[in-house]
Amino acid sequence: MKVLVAEDDPHTRAGLEEILIEEGYQVIATADGRQAWQAFQDHSPDVVCLDIMMPHMDGYEVCRKIRRQTDEPAVLFITAKSEEIDAVLGLELGADDFIQKPFGVKEVLARIRAVTRRIYKKQSAANTKALPDSFTLADLKVVPSELRGFRGDQAIELSLRDLQILKFLHRNEGRALSRDSFFDECWGFDYLPNSRTLDQHISQLRKKIELDPKSPEIIKTVHGVGYRYG
């Protein structure tokens, strides 16, 4: 899933990019409205995160141009001006949500995930795209379209990255999978691997889905190789 981020502050932009990549999204980052509009036309992103005050073209204008062309992508405004965003929503420019500065990582992720679920739901209703099927890993039922896993009645929030890892493990049940194969499959070929990235992610994922993260049942460690399911 592609996310276009348009934010003129370089640090905020880079931080958002990092959060979203880590979450499993493909990110296109731009520094002003004109670049954002160009990137939108070039990449057709699923989600657009727009800062309101940007050089060359403000976020409202970018949103208007996008909505004139299509209703497809979800649009989120990122703003420090709370009263302006009220006006935006009031004017029904077509924004799906807004993230108000100063925001925390958890808030950004919660809103992006909510938007992603809505996109899946919309696609399901319109039947426009083949949605990922649900699958089971041990006693965990994973429903990718909801970005959730279920153990009995207990719902577990999952990121896109989590889903990619679990899907990769599910497809290769019983096989020991190398670290590089995880990076290639779940992060993409152009990702520069950091040995700690995968381990940390697996560690956090285990905390979410394993009954006892210290004795994992779903994601088992294969010493010297990588990880294995089953």
Binding site: T12, G15, I19, A80, K101, F103, G104, V105, K106, S203
Partner: peptide
Amino acid sequence: SHELKTPLTNIRMYAELLERSLDP
């Protein structure tokens, strides 16, 4: 106050990012 929000966002966001990558 509005102008303070952007640097504050960065402080908070990067601290949280750092926290996520920290050894438990």
